[in-house]
């Protein structure tokens, strides 16, 4: 990861905008590394950094994470495709379902309580932790 000079003194940065922008760059970089290594999951460090460090509103952070992860996924997906690891035909039914679910989720987002979002998200993290930490594959 290349160091960014703006990160120095950011605790004392007088202009909040510049500081948030530097935090966003670092958060994005970390998300990219996780996404590239694991084929997903980059949104996790991103969400944590955007809410707890850059202090975004929670729903804005969840939605903004999607916008940041989308191009990362596009890049990672291109690499996977070039390596021939993804038969496109097998992926199509998942993509069709994703379009339907993505639209439904987008419409419902305003009405979902934040505590639901947080708890469902945390449950997935716990499940992932168990899966990655358990010795049996």
């Amino acid at each position: 990861m290349s160091g960014s000079p703006e990160r120095r003194n950011e605790a004392e940065a007088p202009r909040r905008g510049a500081s948030v922008s530097a935090k966003s760059r670092l958060a994005g970089a970390l998300a990219g590394i996780v996404n590239g290594l694991f084929g997903g999951g980059g949104g996790i460090p991103l969400l944590l950094l955007l809410t707890k460090w850059a202090r975004l509103e929670e729903k804005a952070a969840f939605a903004t994470c999607i916008a940041v992860i989308l191009p990362l996924c596009a890049v990672s997906a291109a690499v996977y495709l070039l390596r021939g690891a993804v038969p496109l035909a097998d992926a199509l039914p998942y993509l069709a379902g994703g379009l339907v679910g993505g639209a439904a989720g987008g419409m419902l987002f305003r009405r979902v309580p934040e505590v639901w979002l947080r708890h469902i998200f945390a449950l997935f993290l716990l499940y992932g932790a168990w899966r990655y930490l358990s010795p049996a594959r």
Binding site: S24, G28, G32, L50, L72
Partner: peptide, 17 residues
């Protein structure tokens, strides 16, 4: 935030992948 995060994120994703 999205604009600031996307470029470093995309480059790091590419490198890590």
């Amino acid at each position: 935030v999205a604009k600031a995060a996307i470029l470093p994120g995309t480059l790091c994703a590419l490198a890590a992948a």
